[in-house]
Design a protein around this nucleic acid. Sequence first.
DNA 1: TCTGGGGTCCTAGGACCC
DNA 2: TCTGGGGTCCTAGGACCC
Length: 418
Amino acid sequence: MTPGGQPTILHADLDAFYASVEQLLDPTLRGIPIAVGGGVVLAASYEARAFGVTGGMSGRRARQLCPALRFVGGHFHEYQRLGDEVMAVFRDFTPLVERISIDEAFLDVAGAITLFGSPIGIATSIRRRVKDEIGLPISIGVAGTKHLAKIASQVAKPDGLVVVPIGQEREFLNPLPVGLIWGVGAVTRTRLAGVGVRTIGELAETPNSYLRHLLGSAAGDKLSSLATNVDPRRIQTTRSAHSVGAQAALGRRVVTPDLTRTTLGYLADRVGGRLRAAGVAGRTITVRVRFADLRAVTRSITVPAALSATLTLTEVATALADVALADHPHEREITLLAISVSQLVDQASLQLELPLELQDSERRPGTRTGAARWVVDRSVDLIRSRFGRDAIGYASVKFADVGHVPDGFRELAEHAPE
DNA sequence: TCTGGGGTCCTAGGACCC
DNA sequence: TCTGGGGTCCTAGGACCC
C-alpha cells in the first residue's frame, strides 16, 4: 500500500469463467442459463445463477432449480488459452502479476503509474481490453492490500470495478458479511454466527484473544489483522507447488486387493508423470481412503529418498492403503482413493539419492531398482508426449476402469476456477 | 446435497534431540 | 529419578479455496 496515497493492488477475476467462454464461443448460448459440466456443475452463467444454480452443485439439483438449464461440454483447451491471453493483457501493464488460478490474479501496479496512469485508470483499461480484445467480462478490486482487493473484486461482480481508497477501509468493510473474507467458509461462518458475529464490522469489534480461543491462533490472528487492515503479503510472481496429487471417486465399491492395486496404480501413474514432468520428486506419500459414509482417513509415510517412479509410488501407496483398511476392518465399501506426494525436491538433488534407493531395492531380489524404474518411466513419458497418453502404459494401469473422468477435466481441475 | 478433482494451510500430539 | 524448556520432524485430521 502507498501510505496516504492511492491503493495499488489489483485483484482481477474473470466472471463465471467457463460459462462465459462457452457463451463467447457459441453466440446462441448468450443470454440464457447454461452450466458447464454434467454430473457436477463446474460453472454456471449469471442467467443460471439467477435460479440459484452454483458451482459444485450436482447436475440433478441444478436441473430442479432451473428446468431450462442448458448443459454444455467443456472446451478445456480454450479455457486455458483464453486464460493465458488475459494474463498477457495484465503483463502489458506490470510484470508483478501473481496468477492464483486459471482465471484470477493479483497485480501490483505501483511501478506502472508513471507509464499508464492511476491504478483506477489501469483497472479500467484492463477491463476494457479484456472485453474488447478477448470478449470476456472481468471484475477488478483495487485496494491497498491483497486481502482487501480480493474482497473488493467479489463485491464488484459481475462485470464491475470497486475501489477501496486508502483510509476508507473500515467504512467499506464494516457492513460486509464475514463470508467474503478469504478463508472463512461454512464452518467458521457458523461458528462466528453462533456468537453473534455476522459482519466484518462486528468481527472487528471482537477481541483478538476471543477469536483465537474460538477459531485457533492462526485463524484468529488472520481475522484480527484483516480487521486492522494489516496484510504484509507481497505479490509473488513465481510460486512452486508443495504437493502433487490425484484422486478417483469410485462410487460405492466393495474393497478388494485388486481394486486398490489397480486404482492406486492408475493414480500413481498420473502423479508420477506429473512429478517427472515438473522435474521434482517427493519424500512424503499420502493415501486417502473414503468410506461409504463419506468419512475419510489418511495414512502417510516419509521416506529418506524422494520418489517419482510410478511402480515405487504404486507399491508404497498400496501398502499405506492396506494399513488404512486394516485399521477399519468393518468398512466393506469405499468411495474414493487418492494419492498425494509432498516434501518435493528438485530431481537434480534426487540424482544424489539414487544410490540409496538402489541399495534398498537390492535387498529385495527380483524387483527392478529405483534407478531403472526411473529410466523406464522417463521413456514412457517421452513416448506419451509424442503419441498421446494412451500410446503406452503399464498393463494393469492401462486397462483399469477408473479413468472415466476425462483427462481434460483433470488437467483443468489443476487450475479450477470455481 | 451425496455424481468431482487438485491444491494450501493449520492444529495437535508424539518422538526425539539438546 | 524427576523436572523442564526449546526445537524439529512426522503423522492424522480438518477447513477452505478454485
